[in-house]
Amino acid sequence: MSLSEGENIAFLTSSLSKSYGLIRAVSGVTVSVRKGAIGLLGPNGAGKSTLIKTLLGLIAPTEGSYKVQGRDEGYLDSVGYMPEHDCLPGGLTAVGFVSYMGRLSGLPPDVSMERTHEILDFVGLDEARYRKIKSFSTGMRQKVKLAQAMVHDPEILFFDEPTNGLDPEGRKEMLDLIRDVADSGKTIVLSTHLLPDVEYVCKDVMIMNNGELILYDSLENVLGTQNLIVRVKGDPGPFSGALRRMGYSAEVSGGKVLVGGNASSKEVFMAARESDAQVRYISYHSHTLEELFLQLVGDK
């Protein structure tokens, strides 16, 4: 998907690369990412965090350029970041820390305190907000990290593995919070290696592997592509060959042929006639994100 720079673009990169010696953490990423809820997927070490840190200006790219909110600098007031690692000073209370971050982000004192309480209500930290952070559980710390990222009302929020270390209940709660933020019209970039998290929250998906961007599309497009599973009598080789000649992908697996490219049953029967095959079974099959991910990452 290629998009030109415009108001609907959250960030764009052009041949963005970051190397550490011989290792290319991010390799020639060129993309224009639309506003909305974007899932940044990839296995550990795929370059997701490096890409985010580069966009935040924490890491200087080795090559290429980028723009966030249409600007290559001075955009940080409109960006929020929830790091993957712990980043909270244990000696401060949640209220003290979040309002401090609000002031540093340019909120006037009264607004900062008002919004701090509002955001802490939003993330569900009640009386605990007056306790020192060092006494917090992992889930509570994640909520404080989320609150500090949101307190100054940024337009884009980068969440780096926000559900790390959370139990299933805490994970669901965190994803609900992030989805609520996205529903409020903010752009969110959710970096994770957990596919269900992306399916639950996001509308678009970016998949990275070995530093390269291998897919950027809407989840609707990605998951909406229907395949056909066909079983034929005898050797499926000639039948799959006929399908390929017709311009469809055909993958033979376990005696079945997976037909891609939105082929209809009519074309399947045409291919069967051409290859003298007898169709015994035919059914529709939609991709799951997991299948697509394994297919793309496995290929690479």
Binding site: L107, E118, D121, F122, G124, S184, K186
Partner: peptide, 23 residues
């Protein structure tokens, strides 16, 4: 669905870098 407060926006004027530094 969650029962927590909603997330609201703020459109005021941000303080200058000088004031942030002094804080």
């Amino acid at each position: 669905s969650r029962f927590y407060a909603r997330y609201s926006s703020w459109a005021g004027l941000r303080t200058s870098m000088g004031k942030r530094m002094s804080f």
